[in-house]
């Protein structure tokens, strides 16, 4: 699977190191006698002030026009321009967590990060070609779904080992067989600029 992006020895050693560290010195949270927060009572309380770390975050959206090293030049949909700096701690999603090599000129993106003094955005997270469409399922085949999004007909490809489904709020499962024709669904996926189709990450259906 592409998700396990590096097949050289070193990253695996790194994983092994991290696993050992993670399991050895970890703090265990949850499944304890902590008792739950009375969430609804907390809701009725006045809101605490905003977390300053969140309000500091920057956001950018647009199509990638050029890739120069680890900097993405992005043309925003409102004529704005952004320079997105990818680092080795930037998470990159393109249908699944992936690496910078998967990002191509012409892709669309949403990025969250921090404004740098030089005008670039140091990205914490980048979602490439991600779409989240409200659709009606119009057809089902072995490897794809046909659906309408507004008046637009689109093909969504089922990607082995990646596409999942959630039924009425249930856990994400590789079982897609309960999707029905005529059903309303939310499709989270990666748009394919080459043919305007979508690779499906998850199908969420209601009742």
């Amino acid at each position: 699977m592409r998700q396990n992006h590096e097949n050289t020895g070193r990253p695996l050693d790194r994983r092994r190191f991290l696993t050992t560290a993670a399991l050895g010195g970890a703090t265990i949270v949850g499944a304890s006698a902590l008792g739950g927060l009375d969430a609804d009572a907390a809701f009725a309380e006045p809101m605490p002030s905003l977390d300053p770390a969140i309000t500091k975050s920057a956001f950018a959206e647009g199509r990638i026009t050029r890739i120069k090293g680890s900097v993405l030049e992005v043309a925003g949909s409102y004529g704005d321009q952004h320079l997105i700096q990818l680092t080795n701690v930037t998470s990159i999603w393109k249908l699944r967590p992936t690496t910078a090599d998967a990002v191509k000129v012409g892709d669309g993106l949403y990025a969250r990060g921090v404004d740098m003094p030089d005008g670039t955005i140091a990205a914490d997270a980048v979602w490439v070609n991600i779409v989240n469409l409200y659709v009606t399922i119009r057809g089902i085949a072995k490897d794809r779904l046909h659906f309408t999004h507004g008046s637009h007909e689109t093909v969504g490809h089922v990607v082995p080992d990646t596409t999942t489904a959630s039924y009425l709020g249930g856990a994400l499962t590789p079982d897609l067989s309960r999707v029905r024709i005529g059903q309303a669904a939310q499709i989270l996926g990666a748009w394919r600029p080459a043919d305007d189709a979508i690779d499906i990450a998850r199908v969420t259906v209601g009742h």
Binding site: I140, K142, V158, D161, T173, P174, D175, L176, V179
Partner: peptide, 26 residues
């Protein structure tokens, strides 16, 4: 199309990969 699925079953995979495997997304 509905009738076809009723007759021949849903062509989409009922589960991918080894049984019991939880997707990373889950």
């Amino acid at each position: 199309r509905r009738a076809r699925i009723r007759l021949f079953g849903n062509p989409l995979p009922a589960s991918a990969g080894p049984a019991g495997q939880v997707p990373v997304a889950a």
